[in-house]
Nucleic acid binder design. Structure first.
Lengths: 340, 340
DNA sequence: CTTCAAATTGTGAGCGCTAACAGTCAGGAA
DNA sequence: TTCCTGACTGTTAGCGCTCACAATTTGAAG
């Protein structure tokens, strides 16, 4: 920086002002300094800056299962948003969300002076462990529900499930079955709740719940049960004509099971998923599903975190991102009541 | 630090020595200082440390498609290894591996004074763009092949493919078909090469190549072609009794297509994949595949990078990690020659 | 031509740490 | 005793930047 100042014939402080976009610098000086910076390939030393400002401009991300599409995309969204806001992010991936693992991750990040942490913790147990921990800096949860007093952002899972269910009801189905995710996941619970609410509001019967573990295999098994039920009640005007599966991967399994049982989608049974994974569009048939806008979830969580950091608000806010219904062939409108 | 020194009745330099594990500190002093540190909850300021030592102990990770299982796991492995070695990592995820995007990512990381970069670039185009770039610090590629003069680590894809192919040949198949990945991917090419080499070495016929794009759907389509061929040549002692699919996801599609065509796996056609994604064990039937040890890939890449950073070696080394064959039901041994 | 405020620029201190060197203290050899 | 060596500990000076303030310049009003 001293070099730049010398070459440009100004003081180091003026160079600093140019770099920080300080208003009180004449256009001429600014141009000159900028040019010298360019010419010398100078880059401001972030460590010195952090030391002087007492701000590291570094955020931590703690995530639990980054190999799944949802968490992976969320982490990417958060990182992108942070980068746009001029922050460095460092992610720690945990295999399991035990309290010790979370605490260790926090210690690691704290050691680097992170100013805040975004925790991508879709499981109830993880959020609980997190809430019990004494964090060295503001923490914001993503997909962590709003049950506890941590601020957070999540997609409106409930609304998404409602939208799917209502879409199916509106397409002429008398009721909608549901293949839920594992009970410990908040997303799973919210989707189930939304589905149930939509059915009750519409005065439709609430069929028994099936459960999977997010994997295609578990969806396949649930699909076999569903198919068995449809076939068993053939000719008796069965009510099983539509299924809302809690994620796209399981929906894939359901589709396969139905096809193997000789049932057509959507003619015999309409199927909808949740997540809009990239493959969903290429399923056979293309899957109706709910899209999550990970970029905006990331942006919101970073926004929330920086609010806490920069203005020291202590209130814990919850932001909710709107889901988007993507209608594809797997739930094509049913023109007539199901044939007997 | 001054506080700790005052409370412990020593100089700040002694505290520094304790924290840095310097040998010349008496056991008594060390214990006392450690205790005060504990008591005060003191944490050394990383920015000041970085400024004084001129070492940020920060590494960057650039990855292209982190939503796929492979890259996601690799990034996680790298981050874990870096953390174990006392480094902070910051990851940048790119949507596309254009040269500008790569350059931008590097600028961003360079601005934070990263001491090295791990680039997870399985596509040929990405590696090429990377090699053309002037990096501000040492760069190590992961899964970037060893064609260019960048140091790197990769799984021995070639060997893995060989192992799979030889396993199938040893199981009694006269030859092995192959569903390859997209041609731009280095992994894809190496796997194809290994398959071809193994066949030639065994004096087996090399059947025509099928191609997919890693997705289950593309595997399904390839599977339909394969099934069609098997059915068409029924009774004529067809040679299509085993398929090596370049990844597990496509293998899933192949399995489905075969089943739909009324073919049994492994009795009619044996199927093997590559990657050992968590689901592979639960496919129907469980899939024979190649496991990649992402933790050790991460460890090796970080090791390589730190060698470059710490000892300023300029040679570009390539490390190769051994694959592991996981035999499951999808390639059960064939006791008799294929029935006519 | 003077005066003053605003706009611009420069100066010095210090962020918290480590490197290099300068002490201090013991204990054994001369 | 005196000296010296080695083990330990303390002192000082930055690392490269920003903050607070001081100094200077500018331009319009008096």
């Amino acid at each position: 920086m001293t070099d730049v100042a010398r070459v440009a014939g100004v003081s180091h402080q003026t160079v600093s002002r140019v770099l920080s976009d300080h208003p009180n610098v004449s256009a001429k000086t600014r141009a000159a300094v900028t040019q010298v910076i360019e010419q010398l390939g100078y880059r401001r030393n972030s460590a010195a800056r952090a030391l002087a400002t007492r701000r590291t401009h570094t955020l931590g991300v703690i995530a639990v299962n980054t190999t799944l599409h949802g968490p992976a995309s969320t982490v990417a969204g958060v990182q992108e948003a942070a980068r746009d806001r001029g922050y460095l992010t460092s992610a720690v991936t945990l295999r399991t969300a035990t309290q010790t693992a979370l605490a260790e991750a926090m210690q690691h990040l704290a050691g680097w002076g992170v100013e805040g942490i975004v925790a991508v913790t879709p499981q109830r147990a993880a959020v609980r462990a997190l809430a019990a921990l004494e964090a060295p800096c503001p923490v914001v949860t993503v997909e962590g529900g709003h049950t506890l007093d941590l601020p957070g952002v999540s997609l409106d899972q409930n609304l998404g499930a409602r939208m799917i269910t209502e879409h199916l009801l509106a397409s002429g189905h008398t009721t909608v079955w549901h293949v839920a995710g594992p009970p410990d996941w908040l997303e799973s619970e919210a989707r189930t709740q939304g589905w149930e609410d939509a059915l009750r509001d519409a005065g439709a019967e609430v069929p028994p719940l099936l459960r999977g573990d997010w994997s295609p295999l578990s969806g396949y098994q649930a699909g076999q049960q569903l198919a068995g039920r449809v076939l068993a009640s053939r000719g008796r005007g069965a009510g099983l004509t539509a299924v809302f599966v809690a994620n796209d991967q399981m929906a894939l399994g359901v589709l396969r099971a139905l096809r193997e049982a000789g049932l057509r989608t959507p003619e015999d049974v309409a199927v909808a998923g949740f997540d809009d994974i990239p493959e969903a569009e290429f399923f056979a048939p293309p899957l109706t599903t709910i899209r999550q806008d990970f970029a905006s979830i990331g942006r919101d969580s970073i926004g929330l975190l920086l609010d806490h950091i920069e203005s020291r608000t202590d209130e814990s806010t919850h932001l909710v991102v709107a889901p988007e219904l993507i209608v594809r062939a797997s739930t094509a409108r049913r023109s007539a009541p199901p044939s007997a």
